[in-house]
Amino acid sequence: MKSYVLKTEQAIPITLDMAWDFFSSPLNLARITPPDMGFVVTSDYAADTKIYPGMIITYKIAPLLGITMNWMTEITHVADKQYFTDEQRFGPYAMWHHQHHFKEIEGGVLMNDILHYAIPYGIIGRLSNSLFVANKVKEIFEFREKAIEGIFGKMQRT
């Protein structure tokens, strides 16, 4: 099985506490996901629920052609205000391992994401990744960056 990696970095002009509060709430993920993904958190969590190791989060998504499917991830690792990791337990990927890292910097927070994923179905999956999945994943993270800027503003370069 071939795996793929996507790394992103974004500076956000907010405090580490604010960043952690926002990104460690499962319900905020829908706010930074493209509307065409039909992304809905189906887990019954209160708005102030924060992630913890072992937390299971369920969603409905429509990643391709508007076809809705179920997705389940588990929060496997959490270091308060430093990083957390979510891994797919059920869903469209053969493997999904997404690390979210946060570091306080002058004027805000540097957020790094490291995503490892794999597509099922062997050669068909590899072809699918080349033709559209890799671009779709990249578009999701590009949308996310713009959505975060819309919520928190853009970090001023010095």
Rank of each mutant, 00 (worst) to 15 (best):
M1P: 09
K2S: 08
S3F: 12
S3Y: 11
K7H: 04
K7N: 06
E9F: 00
I12N: 00
I12W: 00
P13R: 11
I14M: 05
L16S: 12
A19C: 06
D21E: 07
D21G: 00
S24D: 01
S25F: 00
N28F: 00
L29V: 09
P34V: 09
P35S: 11
P35G: 09
D36C: 09
M37Y: 05
F39W: 15
V40Y: 12
V41P: 04
T42L: 12
D44P: 08
A46P: 04
D48L: 00
T49W: 09
T49V: 11
T49K: 14
G54H: 02
M55F: 01
M55C: 15
I56L: 15
I57S: 01
Y59N: 03
Y59L: 02
Y59H: 14
Y59F: 07
A62P: 05
L65C: 09
G66R: 02
G66S: 08
T68M: 02
M69Y: 04
M69N: 06
N70W: 05
N70C: 07
N70R: 13
T73W: 02
E74I: 09
I75A: 04
T76Y: 03
H77W: 07
H77K: 14
H77P: 01
A79V: 07
D80M: 10
Y83I: 05
Y83W: 07
T85D: 11
T85Q: 12
D86T: 07
E87P: 02
Q88V: 07
F90H: 10
F90V: 12
A94N: 05
W96G: 01
H100V: 07
E104A: 15
I105K: 04
G108A: 09
V109F: 03
L110R: 05
L110N: 12
D113T: 02
D113W: 01
I114T: 06
L115Y: 02
H116T: 09
H116G: 00
H116A: 00
I119D: 00
I119L: 02
Y121W: 09
G125W: 02
R126T: 09
L127P: 02
L127A: 12
N129V: 11
N129M: 08
N129P: 03
N129F: 06
S130I: 08
S130L: 11
L131E: 11
V133E: 11
V133A: 14
V137W: 01
V137Q: 10
V137I: 15
K138A: 08
K138G: 01
I140R: 03
F141P: 05
F141W: 08
E142V: 02
E142M: 01
F143H: 14
F143L: 01
K146D: 10
K146S: 09
E149G: 00
E149V: 03
G150K: 13
G150Y: 06
I151N: 04
F152Q: 02
G153N: 05
K154A: 14
M155Y: 15
Q156M: 14
T158S: 08
